[in-house]
Design a protein around this nucleic acid. Structure first.
Lengths: 226, 226
DNA sequence: GGTCTTGTTGATCATCTGGTCAACAAGAGA
DNA sequence: TCTCTTGTTGACCAGATGATCAACAAGACC
């Protein structure tokens, strides 16, 4: 929706294209002139790469410029504000994760979907994205552009989980009284436990199994007894 | 904003609590000499107050100094580093919350304890502390002193929840296979959902009921069916 | 009153941030 | 080859951050 010209970030824009020819050593080395759209895509892609490695807090005019081999002023030139760039990087990183997971869930039964969902989200291979999420909750209070993106992506995630739950209920695999609330619960659990793992807990192997068990208990029969 | 002649002068006019006598107006107003321990306590207390209102990110030499009606250098003088002050403020704020909740849980049955726990933690009255928690997970990656405190306080929280669970199991009110893991799950759920509420969700009334229901389902019979 | 310890301050530094703008020069078109 | 559009840059600015230190002065002590 936000990238009509280039739907899926092309490989070229994924990582910064480092000028291999070391011909221009340090000195007034000017980077090759690029088409405005190309350059802007590169700036955003670089911001995303930094977000994955150092978190959203690592995105500054100068870090992006340095990594892209460009003058700091150029970054500022292609972006309305750094807050916007941070917001956009957040949306990209999170959206890619969501796309990955969505593809992973396609064609699975509700139970399989739950297993794959928890398995891929809690195996520790996505700690970089977890950090981005946690930072977004904190930074969102001072960056309204970011806050808006966060709300949007949270809704998108909830929709995916809700889809899994609805499918499960329809197929009779799950029994949920309030699917909407249950979807938020699932995400809250996963997010909360992942966030904690940023500072504590190295044993990621055990976690997913426990969470999966809890989720199954939660989604197969609610309000057992008052 | 544009006051070059007086760089740090407006500091004293912020929110100083000690000097009630308006005698000392702005000018070289020196705060009364305090015993080193008293002053240090005041600095830490001020940092805590800022953390509750603006978050850990709001704690700087100058904000603390301004609020305490003191020169920025004095703050720096009574603290090994700002990272340490942030870490200490975090520990204090979180510990006070834990003390509150612990007192609230005293003498309650497991079911009452769960209800009170979720009720007080998710009614929205502790959003200030939630923000501190979320920030701590993010800032902990660049502030080792803070990270250590975070781990310590997380363990303390887990111990409290574990106590509730153990009591419930002993009394026959709860049936939990792995109390240790369950304790982490409870905290993860609460933390995750609270964190999300920082950016989204204003309907806090519904949340606690749903969480409580889910927790009861989780803690009264685990692994229902493979 | 005077003296002297020491809590406190102002000035200053180095470093970082986002942002702006005139001026340069790459490279396409003539 | 020359011209001219425009992508790109360096040099700035104002502001914030953590930190240090000589110098001041509050107030306890004599």
């Amino acid at each position: 929706m936000s990238t009509p010209p280039e739907p899926a970030a092309p490989a070229a824009a994924r990582e910064t294209l480092p000028p291999p020819t070391a011909a221009g050593d340090a000195r007034g080395r000017r980077s090759r002139r690029l088409d405005p759209e190309e350059r802007r895509a590169q700036v955003v892609a670089t911001a995303c790469a930094i977000a994955r490695e150092d978190g959203l807090a690592g995105i500054t005019m100068r870090t992006v410029a340095a990594r892209a081999g460009v003058a700091p002023a150029l970054v500022s030139h292609y972006v309305p504000s750094m807050d916007e760039l941070v917001a956009e990087a957040f949306a990209r990183v999170v959206s890619e994760e969501l796309d990955d997971v969505t593809a992973l869930l396609r064609g699975a039964t509700a139970d399989q979907a739950l297993e794959r969902l928890v398995g891929t989200l809690m195996d520790g291979t996505r700690d970089d994205v977890t950090l981005v999420w946690v930072e977004s909750w904190a930074l969102g209070r001072r960056n309204e552009a970011l806050a808006a993106r966060v709300r949007d992506r949270m809704d998108a995630w909830k929709a995916v989980v809700l889809g899994v739950i609805d499918d499960g209920v329809r197929a009779g695999d799950l029994e949920v009284r309030d699917p909407d609330a249950a979807a938020w619960q699932v995400l809250g659990m996963i997010d909360g436990l992942n966030a904690q793992s940023l500072v504590r807990w190295g044993s990621t192997t055990e976690r997913s199994g426990l969470v999966l068990r809890a989720l199954r208990g939660m989604l197969t029969r609610e309000t057992p007894r008052p």
